[in-house]
Design a protein around this nucleic acid. Structure first.
Length: 296
DNA sequence: GTATACCCTGACTA
DNA sequence: ATAGTCAGGGTAT
């Protein structure tokens, strides 16, 4: 601003993170669904704006957002080494951290995060991406990128609540459509929902999220971790269960993931890794391909 | 409390 | 080519 440059629009900014960051790992690890990588540059829509980010050595070249937003979004305002050393309590997790150094849990918008992970149940990443894109095109505001291509912001709760159930089904949401329909209606009528949950202790926030239709333990844990920065959250999917069994002998991947089983695994992880268990989970997930050979 | 069928789509197999 | 199978999280019974 001081030099007449509008850093909130398409001017380019440069930022040198004070703590380690691996942008590729951060944006491609499956926590986000609206970023794609071009030549060397990541493009995405967040906070209702087109944003580009490129990492070169220890510098970030970005456009479309303020430096303050970038730092907050990528969680670059916290001491990485202090955080990571808190849960690097054994050789398995230390190995995963070394192999994916600089992975960050992005601060997502709670509302977008909640709907995204409601879509994510019983789906893979390409499918989830399609569902979210359909939602944005159907109910989101169009956004013109600097290169004149048109994208769509994630819709507000009100905008999404105005779609009929059938219009939501048209977004290839399948049986998730009624869940999203009801949950959206509840949230559109209750603007304070996120502030309330943010203030709650972890278990209470978790129970509160699980009262919304279609939100069970897994989706709730993802929303707490990615949308509310409750880093003790430890979402357990089939990958994490398999890894936890292999590395720590906890749980039994041969049977279906029952609620009791889910509970056992997450309690163990929260106890074992501590207040940043969710970060440990992301590192383990990031190296999951190492454990695909053989069966358990 | 716990097990099971079902919801829907896409990817894979026969 | 097309039918059948399966993965995946939440819910109702």
């Amino acid at each position: 601003m001081t030099r007449g440059i509008d850093m909130t629009q398409d001017a380019v900014g440069v930022y040198e993170p004070a703590y380690p960051l691996n942008l590729d790992a951060t944006l491609s690890c499956g926590q986000l669904f609206r970023w794609k990588k071009g030549e060397n540059t990541w493009q995405g829509i967040a906070d209702g704006r087109f944003i580009t980010i490129r990492q070169k050595e220890n510098r970030l070249f970005f456009s479309g957002c303020s430096e303050a937003f970038l730092v907050s979004y990528l969680h670059l305002d916290s001491d990485y080494d202090a955080m990571v050393s808190g849960f690097c309590c054994d050789s398995h997790i230390s190995d995963a951290v070394c192999r994916t150094g600089g992975l960050r849990i992005v601060r997502q918008d709670p509302w977008e995060c909640l709907i995204s992970y409601l879509c994510a149940q019983n789906a893979n990443i390409p499918f989830i991406t399609r569902m979210i894109e359909n939602i944005c095109q159907t109910a989101g505001e169009p956004i013109l990128a600097p290169d004149k291509t048109v994208g769509y912001a994630f819709p507000t709760p009100t905008a999404l609540s105005l779609l009929t159930l059938e219009e939501k089904r048209g977004c290839t949401l399948g049986y998730r459509a009624p869940y999203i329909h009801k949950t959206t209606a509840a949230i559109a009528a209750d603007p304070e929902w996120a502030n309330r949950i943010r203030e709650m202790p972890f278990e209470e926030a978790r129970r509160s999220l699980m009262t919304y239709p279609g939100i069970g333990p897994k989706v709730a844990d993802c929303v707490l971790l990615f949308g509310f920065q409750k880093y003790e959250s430890f979402p357990v999917d089939v990958w994490i269960r398999m890894i936890m069994h292999r590395l720590y002998g906890i749980g039994n991947p041969a049977v279906s993931l029952t609620p009791a089983e889910y509970e056992r695994i997450r309690r163990f992880a929260q106890e074992h890794f501590g207040p940043y268990a969710g970060y440990a989970q992301e590192f383990l997930f990031a190296v999951r391909e190492s454990y695909t050979d053989g069966k358990f």
